[in-house]
């Protein structure tokens, strides 16, 4: 696919649903420079831009689960607007003065459900970040329990623990540590309100 070829919104949504890397990469190549330029001009860095773009794609991924969902704007406008709004929120949280209001098109894109998904994604990202801060054993037990849906008996076998009861205790402690880490992060309170 040519880089300059315009991707219709329905094709983009199909690409998201089917994890089509060709389509998604093409959209990323168009959006990443826009997002990076915007973030660099507004007190952020390259990593912030990449994180924002990932969050925006996650919002579209959640929206695309609804087969009736459609995008009535250019794909790059849609994705960039989500990034722009996410960045505005982050700047406000970091107590920076934000620079400017959103245009009418941008306001139209940011419907209540999109805003709610953005908040949900920010909270999910916070949990994911904190999971990575846990020790390997805690990460593994949470992975086996939640992602792989293993029973405590199975977890005890996989991790060579003395009993399912002990696996249950370890999982409880891992979860407790995770919740403590999330609660300690100042973003937790901000994302709650």
């Amino acid at each position: 696919m040519s880089k300059s070829k315009k991707i219709p919104p329905n094709l983009f949504l199909e690409g998201i649903r089917n994890k089509d890397s060709l389509i998604i990469r093409s959209v990323m190549k168009a959006c990443l420079p826009m997002v990076t330029n915007h973030v660099l001009k507004n007190k952020g860095n390259k990593q912030d831009a990449e994180d924002l773009l990932a969050e925006a794609f996650m919002v579209v991924f959640q929206k695309a689960k609804d087969p009736k969902f459609s995008i009535n704007y250019a794909v790059s406008t849609y994705v960039f607007t989500i990034c722009k709004n996410l960045w505005l929120k982050q700047l406000r949280r970091r107590k920076f003065k934000d620079n400017g209001d959103l245009s009418d098109i941008e306001m139209a894109i940011l419907t209540d459900d999109v805003l709610a998904l953005m908040e949900k994604e920010e909270r999910a990202k916070l949990y994911q970040e904190k999971i990575k801060m846990l020790d390997k054993q805690s990460q593994y037990i949470l992975f086996l329990f939640y992602r792989e849906k293993n029973s405590f008996k199975e977890i005890a076998q996989i991790m060579e623990l003395k009993s399912p009861g002990y696996a249950k205790k370890l999982k409880f402690l891992a979860q407790k540590k995770l919740i403590k880490l999330v609660k300690q992060d100042p973003r937790y309170e901000e994302l709650k309100s």
């Binding site: 168009a30 826009m34 990076t36 330029n37």
Partner: peptide, 12 residues
Amino acid sequence: DFSNSKAENQDL
């Protein structure tokens, strides 16, 4: 290095 490049395909 996107930080030094102009946006591409803004009409995508």
